[in-house]
């Protein structure tokens, strides 16, 4: 059976409680049961419910999730055309993503979804067309994007330094984001030893850590189990609710109820 404290800990992390606070709350609960000799379940109740109570007392009384209204356009693309050799993968594609909006890009394999995202990120040049962006961009690739021989904490340090965070702050922020993806113990494991799903969590955490205004996510949930997959969407909505613009490339049509706008790319266009 899983330890009550472990369940409680990951429940707090998943709710986005900062890593340092989680450590303190768990330690305090542990000290209490140590002193009183009472089992945690009877002292604190179920771990999930107690996590809710803790979160409620940590957050100012602002009932429910308030969603920011759709704001200005943060990402605008016009007339994007891209050819690889003689094959035209993107023809005159346009898109607008507002602050507080989630856009899904869907389409069959090879229809240029990832290419479009890279063009928006400014990593690939189109043959014609323009991309306009307000603020900073974050990009999360389908795979790769990590450094094999560095640990998760070192990745956090690397990305954190980009926005001026010191080592300890970057680690704290990174672990907090990782916790929201149900990854309770990033830390000393090198990226090359992580499973595919966990590596993607690292990738997503890195994107979150740089606090971008426009988030471009290229099917970042590959290898996620069901629970993490739902946490991923919670995270996307949390970004949206904070007024970010989020673009998710996906091939799963069942997800389309989770987004605000859908852009379908197809070769028949």
């Amino acid at each position: 059976m899983q330890d009550w404290f472990d369940v409680f800990r990951s429940a707090l992390l998943r709710r986005g409680v900062p890593h340092a606070t989680v450590r303190q709350v768990v330690e305090e609960a542990r000290a209490h049961t140590g002193d009183s000799g009472e089992p945690p379940l009877s002292a604190f109740g179920g771990p999930e419910a107690y996590a809710d109570a803790v979160v409620a007392s940590l957050t100012p009384t602002d009932p429910g999730r308030t969603r920011a209204p759709r704001g200005d356009v943060l990402l605008r693309a016009r007339g994007i055309t891209k050819r690889f050799g003689r094959r035209t993968v993107l023809r005159d594609v346009a898109l607008d993503v507002h602050a507080g909006e989630v856009l899904a890009i869907v389409g069959a394999n090879g229809c240029g979804k990832s290419t479009l995202l890279k063009i928006c990120a400014g990593m690939v040049s189109p043959d014609s067309g323009t991309v306009e962006i307000a603020g900073r961009v974050g990009y999360c690739p389908q795979d790769g994007g990590t450094i094999e021989f560095l640990t998760a904490d070192e990745h956090f340090q690397l990305v954190g330094a980009g926005r001026g965070l010191g080592r300890a702050d970057a680690r704290e922020h990174g672990r907090t984001w990782a916790g929201r993806l149900d990854w309770a113990d990033p830390g000393a494991t090198q990226a090359r030893h992580l499973s595919g799903g966990t590596r993607q969590k690292l990738n997503l955490t890195m994107s979150a850590l740089s606090e971008p205004d426009v988030l471009l996510l290229d099917e970042p949930y590959q290898g996620f189990d069901r629970g993490t997959y739902l946490n991923f969407w919670d995270l996307v909505w949390a970004w949206r609710d904070r007024g970010r613009a989020v673009v998710v490339v996906t091939h799963l049509l069942a997800e389309l109820d989770k987004v605000d706008t859908v852009l379908t790319l197809g070769e028949s266009r």
């Binding site: 303190q24 709350v25 305090e28 609960a29 209490h32 049961t33 009183s36 009472e38 009877s42 002292a43 604190f44 109740g45 107690y50 109570a53 803790v54 409620a56 007392s57 940590l58 100012p60």
Partner: peptide
């Protein structure tokens, strides 16, 4: 008083600045 009742109260007092803490 159950721990599950007491600690959330302590957290709220801490958050609102009525108590200070150290380890």
């Amino acid at each position: 008083i159950q721990g599950g009742t007491l600690y959330p109260v302590l957290l709220r007092l801490e958050r609102t600045g009525l108590v200070a803490t150290d380890w």
